[in-house]
Nucleic acid binder design. Structure first.
Lengths: 194, 194
DNA sequence: GAGCAGTGTACAAAATCTGTACACCGCTTC
DNA sequence: GAAGCGGTGTACAGATTTTGTACACTGCTC
């Protein structure tokens, strides 16, 4: 497909997002900074909000893909921390100009994908019921995105490396516990798939 | 104009040039690595050699532009050294698979542009005759590219920073001398422009 | 000599990008 | 409060770019 222009728009947008909040960014600026016609922008995106959605979905995919073949939760979340750090200003500017719902949607998608793939990677799927797995994923997803929301809200002061390292360890323990619980239920004759 | 595809081809090419010599790189590889149709490559370039030429000319422009507003020869050449370092493998792979003429053309273009712009920047143009200026530029151009040829040929062992720092000092001295010579000739009644 | 992987070319169709034009909105300024 | 300004969003025709398909050719290998 080779949509280089679309990529260029996204890059220019992220670039601008590093400089200023979302609501100060105009289509004209984006279009000027990658030297394309304004209509070309509208050919690819309905408006700036559509672009934001696209970027968010893209980032979700990018981050999640990084974790697809990861060895441990800890390692996975440290990777995620690196991502957050590298996009610090952009995340901050989105946070400050977009509704909380929008940011939560962003963080939830990332968290969901990451947790889901990690869960698969750790083969938890075979050890707990489908229902339990969904609940666990949901719990971690909300926990993770909530934590990040708080972290951004407090000006990203805490060291994300350390923060997420701790969380990673915690999650690893929890998942082990869930697995153990799953095994116990299996021994007791419970159904393992929904 | 927004020729993002062309840029992508160039980038993929430089990427591959960091991995392997020019004559091991196929159009197919380039095309695959940026996920475009093979015909799209031929739409932009006649063949790989045309791509190389384009890349060389582009690099020349890029490097030269960096030196357009430079304060001293020394500073300019240290910039050039950084460039050489950052493209070390690519230059090496070109060196090892392309004719000496091709590499010399590359180095000569860069050297010529750099020296010419530096000469202008230093306002030498007003102090020596047009003929002298061309000769001086030619001399430095050959000296610089010859030096780099030798350096690459010897496996890029010497530290280019140091090497070029010395050369820069030497050149600065020479140009000062040429300027002085120009002034003397002017005083003696010689023509200053050809 | 057949099979394979790559090159280079041709052409039509599809996708993308641009120029131009218009209606609309919010803001400033006279 | 009307005019001017800068930005948005839409429409459409035409230009440019990209793709798919096909074919002839080369060099290599088995």
């Amino acid at each position: 497909m080779a949509q280089f222009t679309k990529k260029a728009i996204v890059e220019a947008f992220l670039e601008l997002l590093n400089e200023k909040p979302l609501d100060k960014i105009t289509v004209k600026e984006i279009v000027d900074s990658c030297e394309i016609n304004r209509n070309t922008f509208y050919y690819h995106f309905e408006d700036i909000r559509a672009l934001l959605t696209f970027v968010i979905d893209g980032e979700v995919e990018r981050v999640a893909a990084k974790h697809a073949d990861v060895e441990s939760l800890e390692e996975g979340f440290i990777e995620a921390a690196h991502f957050a750090l590298s996009n610090k200003r952009a995340v901050y500017h989105i946070y400050n100009s977009v509704s909380r719902e929008e940011l939560e949607r962003y963080l939830n998608s990332i968290a969901e994908e990451v947790v889901r793939r990690l869960a698969e990677g750790l083969k938890v799927t075979r050890e707990v019921s489908e229902l339990d797995r969904e609940l666990i994923i949901h719990f971690y997803k909300c926990g993770l995105s909530g934590m990040v929301m708080a972290w951004v809200g407090e000006g990203m002061k805490a060291d994300p490396e350390q923060m997420i390292r701790s969380l990673g360890k915690l999650l690893e323990g929890s998942i082990s516990a869930a697995m153990e619980k799953g095994r116990q239920r299996k021994r007791a004759g419970g159904k393992t798939t929904g």
